[in-house]
């Protein structure tokens, strides 16, 4: 079995199963927990609605924090949007998703894919630079750096595979698939779960604060 066969076969199989099962364990495991009984009268009768609205209203920091946080907020948006587009809009990825789900849609030209991948990588580097330069703000753990590496690897290997840089194409493609498999398997057990949690945690904070009468 070659490296590419291993990557396309057992490795990606196992990682997707871990991704799906792991995410479900964490999502259901947390969401099925009950909250303590609410013994106080809400200060705001529209508290719940305003709480859920927070999911969107806090998509950008409130005015007080704009100047302090705009660098990482802007960079994070650039990174997330570019990465999302690369994941779902370049033809080889659509082919992979089609093989899994049967769904397909038109892809972007490769040069746009390369540009987006490069933008994603540069913004990811910009974000780690800030994290490294302001340790007192982030209180980083080893897991944060491991996560950064695991997110960066598929981007780097994908760009290298496309550009036919470094090792032979089939080896780079295998490394790209393996690094993606690592990302999938790591995802449910790391901060990458924020892809799901941001909805619930923002809504939970919003509901709790609205209940107390905080202006949302």
């Amino acid at each position: 079995m070659t490296l590419l066969e291993f990557a396309r076969g057992p490795a990606i199989h196992a990682s997707l199963i871990i991704l799906v099962a792991g995410s479900m364990i964490r999502l259901v495991g947390v969401l099925a927990l009950t909250r303590g009984a609410d013994l106080s009268r809400p200060r705001d009768v529209f508290g719940n609605f305003k709480g859920y609205r927070t999911v969107f209203s806090r998509a950008w920091p409130s005015d007080e924090f704009t100047i302090v946080t705009r660098y990482q907020t802007a960079m994070a948006y650039v990174f997330h949007i570019a990465t999302l587009l690369v994941v779902v809009a370049i033809v080889p990825h659509i082919e992979f998703i089609t093989s899994l789900t049967g769904l397909s849609w038109p892809g972007l030209p490769n040069w746009i894919g390369v540009a987006l991948g490069t933008i994603a990588l540069v913004s990811l580097i910009a974000l780690i630079m800030r994290r490294l330069s302001k340790p007192e703000v982030y209180n980083s753990t080893v897991g944060d750096y491991v996560t950064w590496i695991i997110v960066a690897l598929p981007l780097i290997t994908g760009l290298m595979a496309f550009a036919h840089v470094g090792l032979r194409y089939e080896t780079m493609l295998a490394l790209h698939i393996l690094s993606s498999a690592l990302l999938f398997a790591y995802f449910p057990f790391s901060k990458l779960m924020h892809a799901f949690w941001f909805l619930f945690s923002r809504a939970q904070s919003g509901v709790a604060y609205a209940h107390k009468g905080v202006r949302i």
């Binding site: 199963i17 799906v20 099962a21 364990i25 259901v28 495991g29 082919e95 093989s99």
Partner: peptide, 29 residues
């Protein structure tokens, strides 16, 4: 199949993983 396609067959295994994960999560809860 293009070189990018995974050799997954049908999605039965992923469906089973979803159900198993949900069951484990519910058990933990």
């Amino acid at each position: 199949d293009s070189p990018a396609k995974g050799q997954f067959g049908d999605g039965a295994k992923l469906g089973a993983a979803t159900v198993a994960g949900a069951a484990l999560g519910a058990g933990a809860a």
